[in-house]
Design a protein around this nucleic acid. Structure first.
Lengths: 145, 145
DNA sequence: ATTTATACTTACCAAAAAGAGAGTGTCACC
DNA sequence: GGTGACACTCTCTTTTTGGTAAGTATAAAT
């Protein structure tokens, strides 16, 4: 994320005049990419470098074959990972991040850091909200009968 | 993930030793926050400063009342927006970002910029993938006689 | 001949998310 | 007394998503 967050020479921030069609596309991309499994796979691959199907599944506990395949395919389609098939028996397929995939990991770092930094603030806000909601709900709820 | 290069005073990057429970929570937060409507509302509020329900709905085309309320409530609960009720008739409720909300907007900027910068690369990768898929699917598909 | 390993694909089903649309409460206005 | 504005809430239906489990192909090992 060392890219443009630090350097002001890049294009205007989202608060400026953004092309609607670019905006829509960007939104779609972020929506796809900011997915639970995508992020976990991104992390696993960033950490381990190159992994095959079953190893990947082991590194991301709870993922089903379906989601693993599906997410990997999407990532491949978006150019985030490369899939290398070794024509041997039994099959061997290896996955690793492209430069694009790595740069996404870096971009997401900012959000990760934000989340880490503000974890306590968010939890505090949630508790406060929930307490307020509980406090407000009570006096309104008059017992029936 | 050399994000520390830009911000050396921060804690370790995700690729390092991350507390599993923090990681889970961070993931949950990102998952909630990296949502389509949340991002659009964040943008609208960042741009306009303070908006009421109906104005907000106008600034985010396609959002339903349900999603607007729901997303706004979540954002309020997470401490991203403040909701100010003016006790008048007809009702008037205004929403604006908190400091936390604004900082999230900034953090997301990195991803926005990444998406903008790499839009072409992603689309190119998608086209290439789709073409390859089409090319591979054809010769295998033998017509059932 | 059966089992094993790998990397999937497909079909089916349950759960969750999202959309549509009607209903609520209040007061000013006609 | 009816209508409209506002900010919702509630219910119903549809769509999307994700999990489970079985099937596929291949060759070596048993």
């Amino acid at each position: 994320m060392a890219k443009s967050a630090a350097t002001p020479k890049h294009r205007a921030p989202p608060s400026g005049p953004v092309d609607p069609k670019v905006e829509a596309l960007v939104n779609e991309i972020i929506g796809r990419v900011a997915d639970k499994w995508t992020m976990l796979l991104l992390e696993a691959l960033a950490e381990k470098g190159e992994l095959r199907f079953t190893r990947l599944a082991e590194h991301v506990p709870g993922i089903s074959q379906k989601m693993l395949t599906q997410t990997l395919r999407q990532m491949e389609r978006d150019g985030l990972v490369v899939r290398t098939i070794h024509p041997v028996i039994p099959p061997k397929v290896e996955y690793r991040l492209t430069a694009l995939g790595m740069s996404l990991g870096e971009a997401f770092c900012g959000v990760w850091i934000w989340a880490e930094d503000n974890l306590a603030a968010i939890e505090k806000a949630r508790r406060a909200f929930d307490d307020r909601a509980a406090g407000l709900a009570r006096p309104v709820a008059r017992k029936a009968g």
